[in-house]
Write a protein that binds this DNA or RNA. Structure first.
Lengths: 116, 116
DNA sequence: TGCGGAGTTGCAGAAATCTTCAAGTGCCTT
DNA sequence: AAGGCACTTGAAGATTTCTGCAACTCCGCA
């Protein structure tokens, strides 16, 4: 009775959550932010994508409430809005491992970097 | 050197994984399958979607390697390919909780069903 | 005040997803 | 072998998401 659209079913909200993570650039951003807040310019330096594109992807994450941003002088900083995100990425990694087992070279890469 | 396309970066595989979960019907299927293997007809009875549409979504999950299927007489059964999927859904639930806090009624619904 | 660096926003064309319809396969029952 | 239930597949139009360009805002500095 309080918020916006009470009729949005829970499973749809969940789907939107996952869909938000379903983009390479957005995944990379989240992985980088796991190490703490970072300015856009840093992300830009590591991700190889156009500035406007990165901004669009950051906006998607912001709208979903997964990251927050604030200005620090001339720079704009981004940070995870909750550390729980790390769990999600970790769980994703585990499934990927299970699924890719003996199904091409990614597995090797996966094992060799407990991070990323 | 073995599998299909070694050049597919890991973070892209991750993004695809999450994107696969980014659909309401697919989320529901996975939630239902957490209780064990089920025939399509059961899923169909609980999900309110056309048979052909459900089939398409099941195919997406199958291609991603998240579920497996096998025939049992006249029925086709589906099952999670790995129990790790439950962790992923649980992690998603946690983030949703964190993100939605004091941001509309879904929170209430979320708390009241540790399942789903 | 005028510049340049740092990001964001609006858009439009391109690409990927969804949804549904029609047709097809498999298996069981009679 | 005929019929019917249980699903899957193929295709096409509708919708959503991506990407890159151009224009714009905000801040710090000369």
């Amino acid at each position: 009775m309080r918020g916006r659209d009470v009729s949005v079913p829970l499973y749809q909200a969940k789907a939107e959550m996952f869909r938000t993570l379903g983009h390479p650039v957005r995944i990379r951003v989240l992985e980088l932010l796991q190490g703490g807040p970072r300015p856009v310019r840093d992300l830009l330096a590591e991700i190889d994508v156009e500035a406007s594109n990165l901004s669009q992807q950051l906006a998607v994450l912001r709208r979903a409430g997964i990251v927050t941003s604030f200005r620090d002088g001339a720079l704009v900083m981004y940070a995870l809005s909750t550390p729980d995100v790390a769990d999600l990425l970790a769980a994703g990694r585990r499934i990927l491992g299970a699924v890719l087992t003996d199904r091409d070279g990614l597995l090797v890469e996966l094992r060799s970097q407990a991070k990323s």
